[in-house]
Amino acid sequence: MPMTLKQLFERANLLKQRLREEEGSERYQAWLKRAKNVWRPYQPKKVRKKIAAVDSGWNYRMYGGFYLYTIRAMAVAPSSETVTEPVVEVDIIPMGVEDSGIRPELYMQGVAECYEHDLASKASKFSDIVLVDGSILARLNAMDILKKVRLLKDYVVYMRPLKNARNILFISKYSQDRRLIRGGVGDVYYINRATRDIGYTEPIISEKEGVMTSVFYVRLSENSDAMHVEVPAIVNSEYVKSVIDALYGTAVKGYPYALMVAHEMASVPNDLMDMVVEAAGLAALPTAREVLEVG
């Protein structure tokens, strides 16, 4: 076995030991206890609400001298019908982006999020609940970076209508938010180990860039993972219960089905990107990957 691999597995083994030790520690037990204390079991009632979900997808190809990118953003109902006009964009990443030290992925993410916010705000007028995949607080925290690529102004414009929007919910399954339990890793880790039933945590309020955001956790079906939810408005536990009632009926493995549909419909897989490249007349140009393969 090559030396590097041997070292790699030794390190992995060391990590395992560290995690075991951590799990046996008193503070770990205290975090679990806290997760159990903040959890409010709830027996949901199925309530029919008009639900929409917003997601975006992007992909890009690197060529000598430029990047071609594609963005799709959609607001859809669980029936796969679009709630508002979807957005698509095919373009070349502005030349200044790389010079500003920003990776193209971050630029596309910034643009895609602008579209998501716009779609969410429009969809909120026709829907009872609009779900957006992600975290508004994380987005607000990262906003400053966009200054470098002159995207901040647009970003703020699209973010503004979300303020106090009580029916727009940002959902993330793999949140690292530690504000509630204040443990070694994200709150959701301890909640998932300490509780298994349907329920929620009381909302806590965070403020960032003038946007008051309620943060809470919900679990929509037993034995599934809890989700981190953010609402850009001040809400109480009755509101949280009404959200569970509305989403509980169509959740799959504890995840809102509308978000699954939005993710699938908005994604830009490689084969679709190949077709875009052909349509843009760039199929003959070697991509950076091909250059690497030849080299």
């Binding site: 669980p78 034995n223 799959v252």
Partner: peptide, 19 residues
């Protein structure tokens, strides 16, 4: 889906989506 409960949930969700 990989388990019975998820299958039940997926059945309900699938009913709502003709696609």
């Amino acid at each position: 889906v990989g388990d019975y409960i998820t299958a039940i949930e997926a059945k309900e969700a699938s009913k709502a989506n003709p696609r």
